[in-house]
Amino acid sequence: MNQYPMTAKGADMLREELNELKSVRRPQIIEAIAEAREHGDLKENAEYHAAREQQSFCEGRIQDIEGKLSNAQIIDVTKMENNGKVIFGATVTILNLDTDEETTYRIVGDDEADIKNNLISVNSPIARGLIGKELDDVVNIQTPSGTVEFEISEVEYV
């Protein structure tokens, strides 16, 4: 059984999406199917087929979320003592030693990853290079443009 690491916020977001799918989307789709059925011949009925496709997608997503939540390992770093170690859920500021550019990332589960908001997947090359390291460590991380040297300048459990 695979455990999915997930932040508390990520689990809440999935629960909200699940609730939306079950209480709003599912009834809307059922209504759309019923309406399309009233239009007669189902073979030529594009609305019916589109609604059935939406239903299939919706039910698949519901199963996907329920599966992830049932196997979720929810990690709330705010309840842990910060010992300067980079762990799942930590917010890490790294300094590119070539460019002096500082970047802050939060290491999250796959479903929460959003690079535009500096949320990186625990399975990304950057996160894999940082996990287990500590404040002030210098790490070499493989990037698309080659290996880059970073110094961990801040580790927060927020």
Rank of each mutant, 00 (worst) to 15 (best):
V122I: 15
I141A: 09
L21W: 00
A127I: 01
L18E: 00
E149D: 11
N83S: 10
T103Q: 09
I62K: 14
E31H: 13
D100N: 15
M80K: 13
N118P: 00
I62S: 13
R106D: 01
I30V: 14
N118Q: 09
E17I: 02
I152A: 07
D64C: 06
L97N: 12
R37I: 10
M1E: 10
K116L: 10
T104Y: 04
D98S: 15
I107Y: 04
D111E: 07
G40D: 02
N118C: 07
R25P: 01
A51L: 01
V155M: 00
L21E: 00
H39W: 09
E112S: 05
S70Y: 09
E20F: 15
E66G: 11
T104E: 05
L135W: 07
E38M: 13
G67I: 04
A34Y: 06
D98H: 11
Q3R: 13
F57M: 13
G40W: 04
I152T: 01
G84P: 05
S56D: 10
Q142W: 05
S145E: 11
V24W: 08
R128C: 05
N117S: 06
I33K: 10
A51R: 01
M13Y: 07
N71E: 14
Q63I: 12
I126N: 08
I74T: 15
G129C: 05
E35H: 08
Q3K: 15
M1I: 11
D136E: 14
V155R: 06
G89W: 00
L42C: 04
L69M: 10
L95M: 11
S70M: 13
V86Q: 03
H49R: 10
S23T: 15
E66V: 09
E156P: 00
Q142A: 12
E154I: 03
A36W: 01
E102Y: 03
D98Y: 10
E53G: 12
V138H: 12
G89H: 03
D100H: 09
Q73T: 11
N118K: 08
T91P: 02
A32E: 06
E112T: 04
G67K: 12
V138S: 13
G129S: 07
Q55D: 13
I33F: 04
T103F: 05
A51Q: 00
G10A: 07
T99I: 05
L130C: 06
N96F: 04
I33V: 15
L130G: 06
I126W: 04
Y105W: 07
Y4A: 08
A51C: 03
N118L: 03
Y48P: 00
I75R: 08
A34W: 01
S153D: 09
N123M: 11
N117G: 05
N2L: 11
K9Q: 07
K22R: 15
L119I: 02
T147H: 09
V155W: 00
A50V: 14
G10Q: 06
G129V: 01
A34G: 07
D111Y: 07
N83H: 11
Y48S: 02
S124Y: 03
Q73H: 13
